[in-house]
Design a protein around this nucleic acid. Structure first.
Lengths: 244, 244
DNA sequence: TCTGGCCGATAACCTAGATCAACGCGGACC
DNA sequence: GGTCCGCGTTGATCTAGGTTATCGGCCAGA
């Protein structure tokens, strides 16, 4: 029996948006090189690297981060199985940030050379990959709104809602439960809060019965209330079918 | 004598990054439809629109914004002459936000149909347009770092540095001076601050002699100090030559 | 010529979240 | 079996920035 292709979660995500032909599936599957394991806490990419490949996450959790001169750390993106963490490095070689594994990850490289060839031979697939980076940007904008306009509880609620829907779309979560291998410090670095305040807000959401969070495992008890608190509208994740 | 093509600022920006052939210049120039004037304060795009074209800014200032249910407004991007405001709408039709003119603008449409054809016929140009959206995302990430980790003065300083370099790259500013047709309320909506606090911080920067700001005209008096305060590193703007 | 509205400037006061500090628990390592 | 150390939890206190309000200048429109 044949091995399940590593690219499957990406194809599934794309197939929600548009029709992917067998030839395109084949082209995507041929893109990935040998997988590599990265332990939690290890860097996948260092700031300043100039990789000649983009890194695809087969499974696990990782995050892009920027360190500030004052010792702060901001996570600017969270990637899960089925995501490219730095597809944009095809076009913007010099990495302006690093990528760290939040949990043990399996990743695979896609050579820039091959991706460039794909832009010559598969315009439709190119647009779908372009869309991946466009959705990343839409998520960035949503986080900007959160950081600029929402308070701590609202931001945390929004993040939980987003992560759940993305994990569900990748087939990694269901029934309003998912495993989230992030510490409260990590969360603070996403939300622009201190670990202490993340803890306080989290305790509050628990007390209100909106969610449980034990041993890295989240259960949403009241999706409606959580989405309302986080002012969450999933349109920006672009999970509907709409051919490109 | 022939009219200066409206697309020029975009070609100049691209030519800083890579070689653009005459055929590619032609293809880009043929992309734009009839120009349209938009008065300051008017919407270019309404949230929820599903345009079948992307809007190119020939001249002027405009901004993407998101309104929150609680009455807040977050500007998530500022666009100047030579920028597409919603190139991504080629791939993500449903606009998750609006675009407003901050000053009088001249804009021109690029039909999605023509852009899609361009992805079939000009892979290299496609990658350069893709790069435009990738740089937008890099700017978003930088703003995330600012909102999450920097204080008000630092954020404002960072924004001024970024805007100056982008305007300079587009040939719209030089000698550390530029016109910035934004109110203090607009600035607050970018920086996640109230107008009152923007004013306080601005007065402070003036008192320190870092910049002047009169009647919508900014003069940076001490670039070094401003960049240091804003922890500004221009790498993310990707203004260097590096073929894609 | 008056009037109303927008915009910048300032002052008094208030709160969300930061900072600092302490403690408990569980797992890794000697 | 003891000792770290990372992680979560909680309390006391502090502060950056929000809120509310007022005022003056400017300009557009009646």
């Amino acid at each position: 029996m044949s091995q399940a292709p590593m690219i499957t979660p990406l194809i599934e995500k794309m197939a929600r948006r548009d029709v992917i032909t067998p030839i395109e599936r084949e082209a995507l599957a041929n893109l990935l090189g040998a997988t590599r394991r990265v332990a939690a806490g290890k860097a996948l990419v260092e700031p300043g690297d100039r990789p000649n490949f983009s890194t695809f996450v087969v499974s696990g959790f990782c995050a892009r981060f920027t360190l500030t001169p004052t010792g702060g750390r901001q996570l600017t993106q969270i990637n899960i199985g089925g995501d490219f963490v730095d597809l944009h490095s095809l076009l913007m070689r010099q990495m302006d940030h690093g990528v760290v594994a939040l949990a043990d990850c399996v990743v695979a490289p896609a050579a820039h050379e091959d991706l460039r060839r794909l832009t010559q031979q598969h315009p439709h697939l190119t647009r779908l990959l372009w869309l991946e980076t466009v959705v990343d940007a839409a998520i960035h904008r949503q986080w900007l709104v959160a950081l600029g306009q929402q308070n701590a509880a609202s931001r945390l609620a929004h993040l939980i809602c987003e992560l759940y829907l993305r994990l569900e779309a990748a087939g990694i979560a269901s029934d309003l439960r998912f495993s989230l291998p992030m510490t409260q410090v990590d969360l603070g670095d996403v939300l622009g809060l201190t670990q202490v305040h993340v803890n306080r807000v989290l305790m509050d959401l628990r007390r209100q019965g909106l969610l449980d969070w034990k041993a890295g495992h989240v259960t949403v008890n009241d999706w409606e209330a959580l989405a309302r608190l986080g002012q969450f509208d999933p349109a920006y994740l672009r999970l509907q079918n709409d051919p490109v």
